[in-house]
Design a protein around this nucleic acid. Sequence first.
DNA 1: AAGTGGTCTAGACCACCAC
DNA 2: TGGTGGTCTAGACCACTTG
Lengths: 265, 265
Amino acid sequence: MIENQFEHMSDPDQLSTVPERIRHLVDEGTALGRLKPNGQLPSERWLTDHLGVARMTVRKALWQLEAEGFIYRFHRSGWYLSPPRFFYDPSRDVSFTKAVVDQGRVAGAKVLSTGSMVADAAIASSLGIEAGTKLVIIRRLRFIDNRPVFVEISHVIERRCPGLVELASTDISLATVYEREYGILLRRRELYLHPTALSDPHARDLRLAHGTPGLFVRRITDDADGMPFSFDHEYWRHDALEIKIDVQGRRPEESDVSIREKQAK
Amino acid sequence: MIENQFEHMSDPDQLSTVPERIRHLVDEGTALGRLKPNGQLPSERWLTDHLGVARMTVRKALWQLEAEGFIYRFHRSGWYLSPPRFFYDPSRDVSFTKAVVDQGRVAGAKVLSTGSMVADAAIASSLGIEAGTKLVIIRRLRFIDNRPVFVEISHVIERRCPGLVELASTDISLATVYEREYGILLRRRELYLHPTALSDPHARDLRLAHGTPGLFVRRITDDADGMPFSFDHEYWRHDALEIKIDVQGRRPEESDVSIREKQAK
DNA sequence: AAGTGGTCTAGACCACCAC
DNA sequence: TGGTGGTCTAGACCACTTG
């Protein structure tokens, strides 16, 4: 019983709000070594009884702690204590696997599906290729310390890496495949990201309830020679990452143009 | 009465979920020209009656549409249709005002408070200055088209711009002040961002309920000569922006090192 | 099969905003 | 002051995960 570990915990009256009281409970469990990152919290019904409030009140509080990134949940399985965020530089980290390992954590990948399509006008212009160019699509689930953290959908120009689908059907890093099998090194070109709500099928694959907050990332990738190579879509858990961008690599003359502003009076 | 504009709208049975039905209602209102971006939706109680479900069900649906960025709310005032996201390159856009105006929208700023502090060890090392250095703090609310979209807290090295507080007490862009009054052009160095929940006082200033999803951005800024200048914290509405990062300005040799990976077996 | 979170109802009262 | 969203109650049943 998970709850037994929390049975005799204190619940100071001076903590007024329900989120604060739950946070205190969790902090105490952590301090006593009974709860570690990715460990499970007591159930909603237990909290309802223990705190003496309605279940909806407990759930509202859990949602707030979730939004802060303090706790997370697996769909219909339970609530868990969040591990530290993963630092990620999407403009620089060409290999997710390497970045994760460098931070002392364990990276994983699972191929969910593969397919193909031809580039439409919009995709073609963003990649700088001709419409109708064949693309390979690989949809993968990515893990940190065995927790699924984002779904990645890669669209790769087929002629640049024939036979990719077969090679991708393993758990090996795609960046490694590109380098070893095709001699291609990657470089990021453009990326866009915004907060959003995750919906199926991505939410399901991440074991999240649909509607959970997430982060949507689009990237366009070139090879080291500046030739267009692929674009990716990523659907991240909102609480798994901290984006870090180091602007130092930029050429000074490009970042400082037109600082002078037309003032909107 | 806002609701009158929606009174006779259709509500097809084939739309199964409540979020879909609300979205349909809004889309129809938009198509008929009765609802524009930043326009107000019918009240929760009206939707409760009109859709024939409990109010909590309506609210849950509104929260999901909010998480998607489709609608937003002002605290205790109502629900509104979201305007388009603002494209923002935090590594490059040294002036928020200029970026907003360039996208055909209206930028605004309001000084909330000013103050001062001395840099502690952590701040000093990240800025590359000595601990104890005096910093000026300016807390401002930033607007796009008269909607508050983020709170900005600037920490500026005092000796680099004496008298800044007096100059900042107007609504003029800070980047303009730095350039005109001190001859300083800015360049970004590092930035970090992650999704989070907004809490008071920032949530209050943004007219959001505390716990609303948001985006937290930290930035370190140099001048054009690479001398440390300031660091900023920004608390954004989650639905106001799309972050766009153009990596082209990077030096190739810095972005392509160490692609080879140690594979985590 | 038991336990978990997910959904939903039908109310009540509170805090705040705008008129 | 009336209307808005915000909070809360005390249940019920459903869908899924887990042992």
